[in-house]
Design a protein around this nucleic acid. Structure first.
Length: 422
RNA sequence: GUGGGUAUAGCGUAGUCGGUUAACGCGUCAGUUUGUGGCACUGAAGACCCUCGGUUCGAAUCCGAGUAUCCACCCCA
């Protein structure tokens, strides 16, 4: 067989029974978010390219080399590489900022990044995201982290929580100076990419995986020691609140986050059993973003979870036994020359009656023999079986068989009656 | 952009001195006498052995290139 075209690299078909794992997971996450007062929003898959350039940041890898951009007639559009920009755009544009603050929203979307695919990293991937807008206090940070923690632990996924503060614009600027001063003497020894990071984003050098850079930066000053008074206090309070909530975390001054809009608290939940791409949830505060996008200065924060990675983690734990609902009643229509296709017609009307009551009912669609229908009923794991043939049509009585216990029960050939019997 | 692994029916695999109609398991479909499934048995459908080129009388098998895919670097969810 040769297909006209095959599925693209970096894209996945999600099939049953996996679709049920996804459904269950998505419903669970939505329920937790709603219990925290978050409402779902939906927004377009594509936005004007400038939106992402402005919000995610011109110099970030995401904007520089990972966006799917197309020229339309009126403008240049980009498939969303993440959710926050579009969600916040929608919040501002639709006046949600005029509602009672804070406003809490969540979304389940697919997003697109053009990078090399590997385990847990795709061109089209799915995210669950949540944004909390209009709250500057540290308890907002703590609540956001607590919600993410509830979702992950509720799903049974083991993770490690890393948090950090990247400070505000001011403390970051000052810290960069201190850091560059420290690194200047060894600048030439750094790896190639880190040398280019020196000017643009020196903080990222601390995150470098190369042996050389690691050694050189082992004693480098860390941002948490150079926060301004307000940022330091905020970060300390977030830590206290997490302690009180009993949430275990590790302060990791090396978490940087590759999106420019982050400020103050940033965090990652990391799983160790899904390969190299272990970050299952990432997020943080972005107090400057809404103003940057043309809205009123409004503090906000959010996080996103990678669905594919969550599902990988679920599977690694063996927690994915979701199944389709299955068939409640298979109706075997045994037509003969004498009955024509009246058994089939009766089967259809009985099935319709059951479906109105939310039961799953099926009957033969392939004009198969009695035995073949029987086998089919078994293969689809039908719970009960009803045979309609000459004698049932004549007497108006039928038998319902339990496919597991083999027990048979007499019953009138009537939708209501059958519904009561199964 | 850079490494490394892999490529044979829907799925999982065998096929390694190159030698006829490419094999097996699962799955699918049908049958094993007429209205009761699972098991067993029988049979059928299903593969240009990733593509192109080379070596050879002969290539799934050897060589080269390409492509796809997976894993990893980078970056991120």
């Amino acid at each position: 067989m040769e297909l006209v075209a095959t599925r693209n690299k970096g894209a996945e078909d999600i099939l049953p029974p996996d679709t049920y794992v996804w459904q269950n997971t998505e419903r669970f996450m939505a329920r937790i978010a709603e219990s925290y007062g978050f409402d779902e929003i939906r927004f377009p898959t594509f936005e004007k390219t400038e939106l992402f350039v402005r919000s995610v940041g011109e110099t970030t890898d995401v904007v520089q080399k990972e966006m799917w951009t197309v020229k339309g007639r009126e403008s240049t559009y980009t498939l969303r590489p993440e959710g926050t920009a579009g969600a916040i755009r929608a919040v501002i544009q639709n006046g949600l900022l005029n509602e009672a603050m804070p406003r809490k929203i969540y979304y389940q979307i697919s997003a697109f990044r053009h990078e090399n695919v590997q385990k847990g990293r795709l061109w089209e991937f799915h995210q669950f995201g949540a944004e909390l807008v209009g709250a500057a206090a540290p308890q907002a940070d703590a609540q956001m982290i607590s919600m993410a923690n509830d979702i992950l632990s509720g799903l049974g996924i083991g993770t490690e929580l890393h948090i950090n503060s990247v400070g505000c614009r001011e403390c970051r600027r000052k810290y960069y100076e201190v850091l560059r001063e420290f690194l200047l003497p060894v600048k030439d020894k750094l790896c190639d990419t880190c040398r280019s990071r020196f000017d643009k984003n020196p903080m990222r050098i601390l995150d470098c995986k190369s042996e050389v850079c690691r050694e050189l930066t082992a004693n480098a000053p860390v941002i948490t020691d150079h926060l301004c008074e307000d940022c330091a206090k905020h970060f300390a309070q977030v830590g206290e609140l997490l302690d009180e909530a009993g949430i275990v975390y590790k302060v990791d001054p090396k978490i940087v986050r590759g999106l420019d809009y982050y400020s103050r608290t940033v965090f990652e939940f990391i799983s160790s059993d899904i390969g190299a791409q272990g970050t299952v949830c990432g997020g943080g505060r972005y107090d400057g973003l809404i103003e940057e996008m043309g809205g009123p200065a409004t503090p906000a924060l959010g996080f996103a979870m990678g669905m594919e990675r969550l599902i990988l983690a679920l599977k690694a734990k063996g927690g994915t036994d979701a199944k389709a609902k299955g068939c409640d009643l298979y109706i075997l229509a045994a037509d003969s020359e004498r009955t024509g296709n009246s058994a089939l017609k009766t089967a259809a009307s009985v099935a319709a009656a059951l479906r109105k009551s939310g039961k799953t009912a099926e009957y033969d669609l392939c004009s198969r023999s009695f035995k073949a229908q029987m086998k089919y009923a078994n293969k689809i794991n039908a719970a009960k079986l009803l045979v309609i043939g000459e004698s049932e049509l004549e007497t108006g009585e039928c038998v319902i068989k339990d496919m597991v216990s083999h027990e048979q029960r007499q019953c009138r050939l009537d939708g209501e009656e059958i519904l009561r019997t199964i």
